[in-house]
Design a protein around this nucleic acid. Structure first.
Lengths: 127, 127
DNA sequence: CCGCATCCCTTTGGATACTG
DNA sequence: CAGTATCCAAAGGGATGCGG
């Protein structure tokens, strides 16, 4: 995929795809809710249980955590499994392939926001 | 930059950067407001004037358009210039280098959301 | 241990009306 | 033509308390 920040990422094909992206905004809304990316990242780093995630984000309340986890599962960004061998039954969350793909893009977004664009004015003619 | 969706994008360096991305959420919020990306894209395609943008998005009201344009300028995603040779004075908006960089990432996000991830389960082990 | 139901409050989007 | 001011409705986050 030729979608680097530098280089000719804005070619004709990409423009065509972009022209029909009226629903990207929905995607953006779906991933920009409070705590969502942080939770996804925490799961990515290995935190599997509700209590672990809770501990990792002290200022995050239970019902928001539960809500976000439900959304993440519904969006297929994390998967949920039940560990039946314990009492009471435990739950384990793990990141999906799709979730990892999203984090890749989030990484680029992070790099983009950190970049000093003012110093790049002469280099973006090919963008 | 090694930030492709396919391949080893989640290497040690990226992980380190990701680990400190608590403020990515702020960036996400700043770009996910209603109409913002649509307006940015419209400007990218060549629409320069307030009235043109208004016409391109019939269900977008004046003051929301004005608000978003102000934010886009403040975020340095678009630049604003005044055309003094006309009466009354006209305004022209154009996308900046930084704005183009954002659209590149939005394009990737679009591709990500459209992809059939269920069929990719076997290919994401290196992610 | 893992959540959900309810209520409240803040934020945000949008309609109407007005100005240089 | 290019916006702004004010007010209002809706949505989302968060605190408290309860259940499986």
């Amino acid at each position: 995929m030729a979608s680097k920040v530098k280089g000719s990422s804005m070619n004709a094909h990409n423009l065509k795809v972009l022209a029909s992206y009226c629903d990207v905004n929905e995607t953006l809304l779906n991933i920009s809710q409070r705590w969502k990316i942080q939770i996804l990242h925490s799961i990515f780093t290995g935190l599997q249980h509700f209590s672990q995630l809770k501990k990792a984000h002290p200022s995050l309340s239970d019902q928001i955590l539960g809500k976000r986890l439900g959304e993440l599962v519904a969006q297929d960004l994390v998967s949920k499994t039940y560990i039946m061998t314990t009492t009471p039954v435990q739950t384990a969350y793990s990141i999906t392939c799709k979730g990892k793909g999203l984090l890749s893009i989030i990484f680029e977004l992070q790099a983009w926001s950190k970049k000093d664009w003012a110093a790049q004015q002469l280099q973006c003619s090919t963008l």
